[in-house]
């Protein structure tokens, strides 16, 4: 019971009031404000993390899209190159064909020209033979031919024919 002498009821009440006063004032000035601030910060950090996570996912999505597009670009480029090569081959074939065709056409034209020239020459030759024959006949008619003359005329006629050849 010695210990009870150390206790004073008045002091207990005063000390309790002092603590309750501190509790009341700290609740107003510190606890409410700081806890609210900590909660707000926690929420904000969580929100920021969510945003970061969402951005990360968007970036990953974008990257995969780009990767897919890049892979397609390679395929597309390869396809286009192949297409160009094929077209080149086609063009080459076309050019070759048209050149061959043109050459054939030129050859044909030349042949036709030659044929025409030849037939023209033959015609000319025929006409000249006729003219010579007529002129020979005329001179035979106009002159009295000796045997020597006939021979000379015949030889002359033959020589002319030779010349024409």
């Amino acid at each position: 019971m010695e210990i009870l002498k150390l206790i004073s009821t008045n002091e207990i009440i005063a000390q309790a009031a002092s603590f309750l006063l501190l509790l009341f004032l700290l609740r107003i000035f510190a606890w409410k404000k700081v806890l609210a601030l900590l909660d707000a910060r926690k929420e904000r950090i969580a929100h920021e993390f969510q945003k970061i996570e969402a951005t990360k996912q968007a970036v990953a999505q974008l990257k995969s899209d780009y990767d897919a597009r890049l892979a397609n670009i390679d395929e597309e480029a390869a396809a286009r190159i192949q297409q160009a090569v094929d077209k080149g081959k086609e063009l080459t074939d076309e050019v070759r064909k048209s050149a061959n065709h043109e050459a054939q056409r030129i050859i044909d034209t030349a042949r036709q020209n030659i044929k025409y020239e030849l037939s023209q020459a033959k015609e000319d030759l025929k006409n000249q033979v006729i003219e010579l024959t007529i002129s020979a006949a005329e001179s035979v008619i106009q002159e009295k031919l000796t045997e020597e003359d006939e021979e000379r005329l015949a030889k002359g006629f033959l020589n002319k024919i030779d010349e024409l050849k």
């Binding site: 210990i3 150390l6 206790i7 002091e11 207990i12 009440i13 000390q15 309790a16 603590f19």
Partner: peptide
């Protein structure tokens, strides 16, 4: 002081 701790 005991009164303080008793109060608390």
């Amino acid at each position: 002081g005991l009164s303080t701790t008793v109060a608390l």
